[in-house]
């Protein structure tokens, strides 16, 4: 395997099973070898593959265009049987994201599959930005303003986004 450099470092995350490490190393290789425009992800610390930071660019033609959003990934020891915990670190104003950055997305919960990866999560989140599920909002105000008052939505999003700086 071409991931020998990573394998030669001390075993990351004392409790993580070899299969988790192997899998995350593969995902990292894939992201590095064939990066997808508009998304990125990388481990925070080379000695612990269980914590990553990712970014997504707001899709063109949406409230989020021109902005970049940071996310944290925390992989459980039995990943990929269970999904990672993903949070928006950049303050967000979106119907399916709460004020703490928690996300309501089925593939991160009861529709998780072992053949999803970090890349597919980031792509799903990117499309969630443009196409929210307004039927089960975590942020009711955002859900209401999304259709009814784009100007106010834009203002509140800008306000939230400035908290990042």
């Amino acid at each position: 395997m071409s991931v020998s450099t990573a394998a030669s470092t001390p075993t990351p995350g004392a409790s993580s099973a070899p299969s988790v490490t192997k899998r995350l190393q593969k995902e990292l290789m894939k992201l590095m070898m064939s990066p997808t425009p508009g998304i990125s992800a990388f481990p925070d610390d080379p000695s612990n593959l269980l914590k990553w930071t990712g970014t997504i660019d707001g899709p063109d033609g949406t409230y989020f265009a021109g902005k970049t959003f940071k996310l944290s990934f925390s992989f459980p020891a039995d990943y990929p049987l269970q999904p990672p915990t993903v949070l928006f670190k950049t303050p967000m104003f979106h119907p399916n994201v709460d004020m703490s950055g928690r996300i309501c997305l089925d593939i991160l919960k009861d529709k998780w599959s072992a053949v999803y990866d970090t890349q597919s999560i980031l792509l799903s989140l990117q499309s969630l930005l443009g196409e929210p599920n307004n039927k089960s909002p975590l942020n009711g105000q955002a859900a209401q303003l999304w259709d009814e008052d784009p100007k106010e939505y834009k203002r509140l999003l800008e306000k939230r986004h400035q908290e990042a700086e």
Partner: peptide
């Protein structure tokens, strides 16, 4: 398939 078959533990 996405809610009953693929998720582990279902």
């Amino acid at each position: 398939r996405s809610s009953q078959i693929e998720p582990y533990g279902v």
